[in-house]
C-alpha cells in the first residue's frame, strides 16, 4: 500500500515537473507582453518583470486596427473549418463505404499530397487565384485552405468511419434511404468526435497560416493576424517586441478556447480512428 502511494506521488511529481518545463516559454511570452518596450534586453534578464504594464495591450487593442485582423482571421478560420468538416467527411464516407472507379487512385493521390511540400505551390496557386478573381479577397483564402486540410482530415475521418459498424447503414438502406440519408443520419453524428478532433487541427493550421495569406491579400483591412503581427517587424532590425508579444497572446486565445471546447471529443475522436488500425 505504501509503495503504491509513493508511486502515485512520483507520477504526479514527474508530471508537474514536465508541466513546469513545457510552460516556461508560455510564461515568458506572457511576461514579455507585460513589460515596457525598452526593457527587453535588461540585465539581469527576468522571467517576471518588476513593473507590469498593460501599455502594449492598450496600444494593440485601441490604437491600431488589430481587432479587424482578428475578425478576419476568425471569419476565415471558422468558414474553412466548417466547410472542410463537411467536404472531408463526405469524401471520407465515400472512400470508406463505396467502391467506384478510380477510388484507389483517388485515395493514393490524397495520401501523396500530404507529402509534397506546399511552399512552391504558391506560384501556380497564385495563378489560379488570379483566374478565379480571388486575389485580395478574404474569401479567396478559403478554397485553398480547404484544399490544404482535406488530405489529412479525410484520412483521419475515413479511419474513424471504418470503425463504425456498417449494420447501421444497412438499416437505413432497408428503410429506403440513400447514401445521403446515411451520411446525414449515421455518419455525421457518429463520426462527430473524429470530425471535431480534426477540426481543432484545421483551425490551428488556418489560424497561423502565413505565406499564402501574405501572397493573396494586399489591403490593410483584409489582412489576417499573422500578416499584421509580422508587420510589426521593422526593416532595420528594429522590432517593438512588447507589441508583438501582446498580439501573440491575444491571438492564442481563440485557439485555446477552441481546444477547451472540443477537447473532450479529442481523445475519443482519435482513439477508434485511423491510428489504431
Amino acid at each position: 500500500m505504501k509503495t503504491a502511494k509513493k508511486y502515485k506521488l512520483l507520477v504526479y511529481l514527474i508530471l508537474i515537473f514536465g508541466v513546469v518545463i513545457t510552460s516556461t516559454p508560455m510564461l515568458y511570452l506572457i511576461s514579455t507582453s507585460l513589460r515596457p518596450n525598452g526593457s527587453l534586453y535588461e540585465y539581469p534578464p527576468k522571467l517576471w518583470p518588476d513593473k507590469l504594464t498593460f501599455e502594449n495591450y492598450r496600444y494593440v487593442l485601441f490604437k491600431v486596427d488589430f481587432y479587424r485582423s482578428f475578425l478576419n482571421s476568425l471569419f476565415v478560420a471558422i468558414t474553412t473549418v466548417l466547410l472542410a468538416a463537411f467536404i472531408a467527411s463526405s469524401l471520407a464516407f465515400c472512400l470508406a463505404r463505396f467502391d467506384f472507379p478510380g477510388k484507389n487512385l483517388l485515395f493514393a493521390a490524397i495520401m501523396a499530397t500530404m507529402i509534397i511540400p506546399g511552399m512552391t505551390l504558391i506560384i501556380p496557386q497564385f495563378e489560379l487565384a488570379v483566374t478565379f478573381k480571388l486575389v485580395n479577397k478574404l474569401g479567396g483564402l478559403i478554397p485553398f485552405y480547404i484544399a490544404w486540410v482535406i488530405p489529412f482530415s479525410t484520412f483521419m475521418i475515413k479511419g474513424y468511419i471504418e470503425g463504425i459498424p456498417a449494420d447501421f447503414d444497412e438499416a437505413i438502406y432497408m428503410d429506403g434511404g440513400n447514401a445521403f440519408t446515411v451520411y446525414r443520419t449515421i455518419i455525421l453524428p457518429l463520426a462527430s468526435p473524429s470530425i471535431a478532433a480534426v477540426s481543432i487541427f484545421n483551425f490551428l493550421t488556418v489560424w497561423e497560416e502565413y505565406p499564402w495569406a501574405l501572397t493573396v491579400l494586399n489591403d490593410l483591412e483584409k489582412r489576417t493576424l499573422p500578416i499584421t503581427i509580422s508587420g510589426f517587424f521593422g526593416q532595420h532590425n528594429f522590432t517593438l517586441w512588447g507589441y508583438v508579444f501582446a498580439m501573440s497572446v491575444i491571438s492564442l486565445l481563440p485557439v485555446i478556447i477552441c481546444f477547451l471546447f472540443f477537447q473532450k471529443y479529442f481523445i475519443s475522436g482519435l482513439s477508434s480512428g485511423a491510428i489504431n488500425h
Partner: peptide, 25 residues
C-alpha cells in the same frame, strides 16, 4: 489613392509574385 504598407522584403517578394499574374499596383 489606396496606400498599402508592406514589410520591406515582403514588398519585394509580393511584387515578384504579382508580376507572374498581372496583379501589380
Amino acid at each position: 489613392v489606396k496606400a498599402v504598407p508592406h514589410e520591406w522584403d515582403q514588398l519585394h517578394k509580393k511584387i515578384l509574385v504579382s508580376t507572374s499574374s498581372n496583379q501589380l499596383p
